[in-house]
Design a protein around this nucleic acid. Sequence first.
DNA 1: ATCTAGATGACCT
DNA 2: GGTCATCTAGATG
Length: 201
Amino acid sequence: MQSKPLDVEFYSIPANAVARSLLGMRLVRILEGARLVGRITETEAYRGEEDLACHARAGRTARTAVMYGPPGRAYIYFTYGMHWMLNVVCEGLDFPAAVLVRAVEPVEGLEQIAQRRAGVPPRSWTDGPAKLCRAFGIDGSLNELDLTADNGRLWIEAGQPVSDENVVSGPRVGIGYAAEPWLSMPWRFQIRENEGHRSDG
DNA sequence: ATCTAGATGACCT
DNA sequence: GGTCATCTAGATG
């Protein structure tokens, strides 16, 4: 399936809407000549300086400057001393907003992914924001990259859209420091089948 | 299945 | 100097 990167329009709407729409889209990474593809299954939206969970709550800094730039760029940051996180900038110029890609389902390039995640069970290869970055070789060198351009390294393509009945939304993860209403804002989205792994009956 | 603690460095106050 | 949009291994039912 050959496709073009999603265009700037896709990212020019409120970040929570982008986060919802990104479910089912395809994250594509060209790494050492190999093509890795993952179906996006979980996202989170962060929007504005008022959002106390958003990095931009501290205003424009060296780190958050990307979020104030044009939509469709990658915002990739380092945390916990060892983890990279992939976000896509959303909304308009000078309004800081982004969507964190929290999980994907491996679709292509399984051999390369398996290599990068050696010793880890397949189910856990890309089911977390830092895990997928490791599996896809995404790090700070790709920060600020334009994901709407033909950059030959990283972009997002259209995929099979997910219907509302198959989407679960809820509060964002790991932001316990934030006050209400931001703490409970339902800006985390995931595909229902990926919500939990229970098989009871 | 669920909990806990440690890793490890950039970032903001 | 404390905090962090996390992950993993290890211990416990």
